[in-house]
Amino acid sequence: MTSMRQRHHFHTDHAGHSVTVTVQTGHAVVVEVLVDGKETGYVTTHGDDPITVRIELPTDPPQPAAIRAKPGPGTPGCLFEAPGAEPRPMSPRAY
């Protein structure tokens, strides 16, 4: 039996930086985080448990942030978290 792999994309802007997340579901879950188009975080796991990916925004000094990805069940979702800011859902993207 093969499992269907699907890619789900999410985006937000924070402190002048573009943050994009791809959540690939299937047998293994892959979460990839890009900041300003550069890969800054990558995690693989199994199952539908939420995953936290810690990243740094390229500010001066670098600012820590985190992405909380929820691979399932159902439609995946992502939450962006940064110090001093309310956690916020990331917008789904169709690409």
Rank of each mutant, 00 (worst) to 15 (best):
V23T: 11
C78Y: 01
V43A: 12
A82C: 06
E56W: 09
Q24N: 02
S3Y: 11
L57Y: 14
G77F: 03
G16A: 08
V21R: 01
Y42V: 02
D36N: 14
E56K: 12
H14V: 11
R5M: 08
P58C: 06
E86W: 02
A94F: 12
A85G: 00
L34T: 00
P58I: 01
G77K: 08
V30P: 00
R88W: 00
V23G: 08
V21I: 02
R54K: 14
G16P: 00
A94D: 15
T44F: 03
V21G: 00
E56M: 10
P61M: 09
S91R: 15
G77S: 15
P50W: 07
V29C: 04
A28G: 07
T75L: 15
H17Q: 07
V31L: 04
G74C: 09
A85C: 06
I55W: 12
A28R: 15
A28C: 05
A69H: 11
V35A: 06
R5V: 05
A28Q: 13
R93D: 10
D60N: 07
P50F: 06
A94W: 13
H46R: 14
A85K: 14
R7A: 08
P89V: 07
V23F: 13
L57Q: 11
D49Y: 01
R93L: 15
P76M: 13
Q24E: 15
E39C: 08
